[in-house]
Design a protein around this nucleic acid. Structure first.
Lengths: 209, 209, 209, 209
DNA sequence: GATGAATGAGCGTTCATTCAT
DNA sequence: TATGAATGAACGCTCATTCAT
């Protein structure tokens, strides 16, 4: 709306390009030159505008984790039952990932590298998110409809399956060895994939009667 | 003992060091100097003995995937019921990961990078493994004890949770934000962790009656 | 006076230093470090400004052959008789070599290496030059004042004597074995040396009557 | 004849291979590995048998110059007239070059590099050779059949034309720009080429009457 | 006499970063 | 605000040389 200043525009272009590049090749593999080129700015502009490579990466991480862990909370409180809340939780994650294609790669880069660059702010967001899951699962237990579970493992099952699915796309297509059922893939999670994972997670967690 | 081939011994030292370094920092982040130092050999020896950085990485990938996807089959055929087989399948994966600490990181690096360096041989091994899972799940369906599932997603749930668990260890410990339940961790999967995942996967897959 | 383009100035310094170094030790013997040092720039500047070692060498070759084969034509067309033209031809070559001390060495490096790096553009220039000589000799034949000759061999006699003379300078001085008459040398061709060669070439080519 | 010892055989193979390689790419461009491979021996054998790269190159130079400057004298003394002697001189050089294909390249490498590695022994041989030419030319002058000439320049005309001819072969064939008359070439000097050069040199030197 | 294995020194090249404008 | 030019510090790799056998 209001005409933003030029600096901000440049900053946005840089951040967008950096997100792309870092997600494709990771921190060590990323070239500042490449980021500058994709952003359509001079390499020195990155240093002038944002700072060094590490700072730039930190900004990317921060933005990513902000998006990751802020939105999911949106629709959950409106839902009343733990089952509905857990469904919403899974679905929100799928939505966020679909809206941020760079996210799974970056999270995996960070996991692989042992989180060396993971900013404290980002882990606060994650913590809030997990707390949300903990509450949902606890409430389910209290109502005697969920079994006792380890929230962190449930979290990893959800995130892990989504992220491996997303990032395995090129691998599955590249190699001829895989069975046919494995090679077909959908680019979005929010359709069939999220449906399935939601189903598995719920079954895994629900008490049989 | 028998005097071993000198070249082979050197090669082993190099491969071991390379596996470590690549798993810690990935291909782009790895320094040949560092690998040489950890192997206790001169940098040039790596080139004399094994070849360039890419070749070395390929060898690491090959060894890793060999170990990953060969062993799990071991105990499965002895088990008769699909439930037993699925349990063995999950447990075997946990065992392999425990025995090869570099494995989760390297797999994640590869996923994150879109499998640019993934050797065809490795994907053959993975394919065999997934085929195994497909058969188990099919048999379960046929016997009407498993629901219809997407094997690749089940696979990703198992692998994803194990690998994220393993690699999240330093992150979880590093950051203060996480709830207490999340911070405690066991270094091996084969104990409680595998038990839990096994339970969730089975519940996710089994038909309720 | 007018403020020159900075990049161009750097480029010139690099090209000059490169010409020197390549002429002294050839392509394989040249060290990029040495070129950078003589040019008074950082080694990386060479890559930023010009490109890799091969590209740099190509530029040197191109400039050398440009100078070699452009100027000789200058004064020849003004001269009317074949004898005068041939004299001018020889003299022009001597002048060019005198003005470009790196030239003989570089041509010899290229000859010795089988012209592996010789750029097509350079050979076009040489070809034009030889064509000039062919025309002079043909005209002389037609006027019945020159014998029938092989132009390429005449060319090699001229170039060969000039270039060996120039490059033998350090050798002749270094070694004590040579007869006195051989050791004295003039640094420029354009004086006595060119006079002599001109005389020999003309005698070799002219028809006796 | 007598069965030579093994060391000598190895030494010969090495020297032959080294001569080839040095003539093709010069001292700086030569790789000890390549020489070893062509000689069919282990790289370490070169050091054991002959010494380091410089020593090996010196041996090659020595052998080359020995061959170059010893043989030409053979037939000259039998010839009585200066004209006949000069013809023999030119022809002998052509023969030696034909018999030693590595010779022109190596001489050119040495000239180009300013004779940095030229051994004193070699220059003694050259000196003897030039002295021979000096005597022939002096005798011709005394008999009033040759004009007064600069022997070193005559020497360079002969050597220069032969060597440029030989080494220009690949260049002339490689590039399309050259006129047809220039592209055809004979691999041996001793035929037409030597005839022509001999004719030019004699005409250049002989007194007209 | 000969060699497979290993290495130190150095080379061409890249890359994150800074400087002058 | 932005950039073209320049650079220091590495990095992957090569190569002449040595060592143990």
């Amino acid at each position: 709306m209001a005409k933003k200043n030029k600096r901000y525009e440049t900053s946005s272009k840089i951040l967008k390009a950096a997100t792309q590049v870092f997600s494709e090749v990771g921190f060590a593999g990323a070239r500042v030159d490449e980021i500058a080129q994709r952003a359509g700015v001079n390499k020195a502009t990155i240093y002038y505008n944002t700072g060094d490579k590490k700072t730039l990466y930190a900004r990317v991480l921060q933005k990513i984790s902000g998006e990751m862990y802020a939105h999911p909370s949106e629709n959950i409180e409106k839902v009343l039952t733990p089952v509905g809340q857990l469904k919403a939780y899974v679905r929100n994650i799928a939505n966020v990932i679909d809206r941020n294609p760079a996210l799974p790669n970056i999270i995996l880069w960070e996991h692989a590298s042992g989180g060396k660059n993971f900013p404290e702010e980002a882990s606060i967001e994650i913590a809030k998110m997990i707390e949300m899951l903990i509450n949902i699962l606890k409430e389910g237990e209290k109502q005697d409809i969920f079994i006792k579970t380890s929230p962190i493992l449930i979290q990893f099952m959800i995130m892990g399956s989504f992220m491996l699915y997303k990032t395995s796309n090129p691998i599955r297509k590249m190699h001829t060895a895989f069975p046919r059922e494995v090679k077909k893939s959908e680019s979005n999670l929010s359709g069939t994939i999220a449906d399935e994972i939601e189903k598995y997670i719920l079954k895994a967690v629900k008490k049989e009667n």
